[in-house]
């Protein structure tokens, strides 16, 4: 399951840059497959990120986020070794999360 998400958190100057990649089809529910059948909606609805277990970012997504979502966000007041955890949940109730420690750039 680890391959469903990738994360890298780096301290650059006084700002921590967190890059996250999530493998997810992000189906809108409007696309048709080769048999002209509607592919059911399947997309990430909520993403949250925490720094040492404290929420720093909460996002709600619709179907307009591109397939295999990519997100970069930025934190101040974070240190090398601090733990960043990113969690997503989709419209089917499936979820995944990944944790990384902040490293030097």
């Amino acid at each position: 399951m680890a391959d469903l998400m990738k994360i890298r958190a780096m301290l650059k100057g006084d700002t921590t840059e967190v890059k996250v990649l999530m493998l997810h089809p992000m189906e809108t529910g409007r696309r048709k497959n080769d048999f002209d059948e509607i592919v059911p909606a399947h997309f990430i609805q909520q993403v949250s990120a925490s720094l040492n277990d404290k929420i720093v970012l909460e996002a709600q997504w619709g179907t307009g986020i591109a397939k295999n979502p990519y997100l970069t966000f930025y934190l101040k007041d974070a240190k090398i070794g601090d733990k960043i955890r990113v969690t997503w949940m989709d419209n089917k109730g499936e979820s995944n999360n990944i944790e990384a420690a902040i490293t030097a750039a």
Partner: peptide, 12 residues
């Protein structure tokens, strides 16, 4: 909690 209001993502 210290998140900078800045982000990069990809949209449709």
């Amino acid at each position: 909690n210290g998140a900078i209001p800045k982000l990069i993502t990809r949209v449709k």
